[in-house]
Design a protein around this nucleic acid. Structure first.
Lengths: 193, 193
DNA sequence: GTAGAGTGAGAACCATAGTTCTCACTCGGG
DNA sequence: CCCGAGTGAGAACTATGGTTCTCACTCTAC
């Protein structure tokens, strides 16, 4: 979940997206003014608006960027835990546990953004749904590889457990829901195999 | 989930809370101006501010009111499905299915509000956490009654499945996640008993 | 050297919305 | 009838923040 460099992106764009990520995640979209993005990134409002013609488009670019970075972090964390001997279908919950324990954790940026912008912007909604679909797609891959005989609904169920765990860990500010979800997933795997 | 009358509440308060519920749920807290609450409820700004000294306090009163109404609806729906022969621990998912299919469904008002107001208002955060805790408490009761020998983590796991199902049904705008959660819950119950 | 394009700093513009205030009206009690 | 408390309608005040504009500066091309 750390800033990533992309070949085809100049330093101003990179600075803007990094700052947007930090601020939007911490305080929500409506809680961050464009002038704060300017102050924190050092990119003038003029250039900012030249790159992103409106705040909505900046938000869309941020969500897109965060989607890529988050998925990379998530899949990497799963692989790392798998390599350490954890069942690959339980590793996602260990990854969530790490995340929830990290400083500044405020839950899923995509779910948070949905509540803020749902009425206004269909583009944002689409990006958010795509993100969650990607997550489930990845789970589907893992299931197909490690537990090919399991029920067809297993990836969807794991996805529900993951999002439920993220949400509740945010509401309750504890990782207990993540551990409960992990136990439930573990039981599901036993009963399915 | 329909407006409810309370003995100790005059008509103005009731009108305000009903209107607040409709508007805040549909468009989010930030998306509704106090003047719209006035227009839709017919209560002047003066009386509105006499009853609730600030928007934040109105929001708190709304969350509180909605909590009571939602829990009543939820427990009633569970009882209804149970009476119709559904396992009481699966009935919550049938209730969610009904809810998600109802017109104007926009997910959980409490989870939506959390993203909007988390930074600002600890009172709101506390109400939201209490609401979710109430939900899990009710699940705990149901489990204690119907499956007393089950694992201690079962109510928490059901709670995670429920919130995950609500969130994903909102993101994807389909009841598929609710059905997936129900299947997972069903499997958990089998394996635990 | 000079014109012109691009840029930064920040003021300006404008819309929105939370909150308060003004003023006229009503209505019950003396 | 008259007073004062309460109220509605809505203007007014104020702050915020998205977006645009001004002006001075720089740097390149000729």
């Amino acid at each position: 979940m750390s800033p990533a460099a992309t070949m085809t992106m100049d330093t101003a764009e990179r600075a803007i997206l990094d700052v947007a990520d930090a601020l939007f995640y911490e305080r929500g979209i409506a809680g961050v003014a464009m002038s704060e993005i300017r102050d924190a990134s050092g990119v003038s409002l003029r250039r900012l608006y030249a790159l992103y013609p409106s705040k909505r488009e900046l938000v869309a670019a941020w969500l897109d960027d965060r989607h890529r970075r988050w998925m990379l972090w998530f899949t990497t964390a799963i692989d790392r835990h798998s390599a350490a001997g954890v069942n690959a279908l339980l590793a996602p919950f260990d990854a969530l546990g790490e995340w929830a324990a990290s400083p500044g954790y405020r839950g899923c940026a995509f779910l948070n953004s949905l509540a803020e912008t749902a009425e206004i912007d269909d583009t944002h909604k689409a990006i958010i749904a795509d993100h969650k679909r990607s997550l489930i797609d990845h789970l589907t891959l893992l299931v197909a590889r490690d537990l090919p005989e399991s029920a067809a609904w297993l990836p969807a169920a794991l996805g529900v457990l993951i999002d439920g765990a993220i949400i509740q860990s945010t509401v309750f500010e504890t990782d207990e829901p993540i551990r409960a979800a992990r136990r439930a997933a573990s039981r599901l795997l036993e009963c399915t195999s």
